[in-house]
């Protein structure tokens, strides 16, 4: 292949203001991180709630959470995004619809759509991890807590969830990384996150290979860093003397 690599391209001016192309990547990375973190907060909170619901003694809560998981897990992420961005705003009450479509900055309305979409999509996956973690605990754990007079919320808060979350840190880490990777779908509705900035740079400069190489490096480094961070968390919360919880 005959290609002249030119890494200086990132330091060339874009012609818009005083920006160089590298600035676009920095802005894009900022959006990607903001998107992924906001979506992750939604996913973790809602997913934990749904995961707990799936293990409750009553039937209705478990069924509602089960239906949620099936719905959000069986529809492609991209379809869900288009629904949230193109269809759901039309269902809003008129003042809200006008506000969303006209008053909001297009980047903000796209950001809201992707955050909700990615948050709810990932919540279904977190829900299943949390449920598995709780169900992996020996039955005697909850029983011992009930026997001491703890209420159901106390049993979950004090005994079941602290153990379940420790067990599921590794699969939860991979969901956490998925949120960052999946946030790239935002480029399809015009939000200028990392992937969109990469494509734009490629189009402006014709330095396609350099642009995508840099994007690859950024995604890789970001996720590697997150993974190391989660390993550190896992080590910090490890219970002394215990290699693997549950099972017994």
């Amino acid at each position: 292949m005959n290609y002249n690599w030119d890494w200086r391209v990132f330091f060339k001016p874009t012609g818009i203001g005083n920006e160089i192309y590298l600035d676009w990547f920095v802005t894009g990375l900022g959006w990607t991180i903001a998107l992924a973190l906001s979506a992750w907060v939604i996913a973790l909170l809602l997913g934990s709630l749904l995961g707990v619901m799936r293990t409750l003694p009553g039937r209705y809560a478990a069924r509602i959470a089960g239906a949620y998981v099936e719905l959000f897990r069986n529809v492609p992420l991209l379809v869900q995004l288009f629904v949230w961005y193109f269809i759901v705003p039309d269902w809003l009450p008129e003042p809200l619809e006008d506000w969303f479509k006209q008053d909001l900055h297009p980047a903000i309305s796209a950001f809201i759509s992707v955050t909700i979409c990615l948050g709810l999509f990932t919540a279904a996956r977190v829900c299943e991890q949390v449920r598995t973690g709780i169900q992996a605990l020996p039955r005697g754990q909850a029983m011992a807590a009930y026997a001491l007079g703890l209420s159901l919320p106390q049993v979950y808060r004090q005994v079941l969830l602290p153990q379940a979350f420790r067990i599921i840190i590794p699969p939860l880490t991979s969901e956490f990384l998925n949120v960052f990777k999946n946030s790239s779908v935002a480029s399809l509705i015009g939000l200028m996150e990392l992937l969109a900035q990469t494509k734009q740079t490629a189009e402006f400069t014709a330095n396609l290979f350099e642009a995508f190489t840099l994007a690859t490096l950024i995604y890789f480094t970001l996720n590697m860093g997150l993974m190391l961070f989660m390993r550190w968390v896992e080590k910090r919360v490890r219970v002394p003397g215990l290699i693997a919880l549950g099972g017994k």
């Binding site: 029983m143 011992a144 807590a145 009930y146 153990q163 219970v239």
Partner: peptide
Amino acid sequence: RENVGFVFQHFNLYPHLSVLENITLAPMQV
């Protein structure tokens, strides 16, 4: 249940809590 202590065959101590925390959990919570 507050007034009825129960001891299990398999102990069922909470593995994520220290001995002291195992004992203080219910008095503090309940």
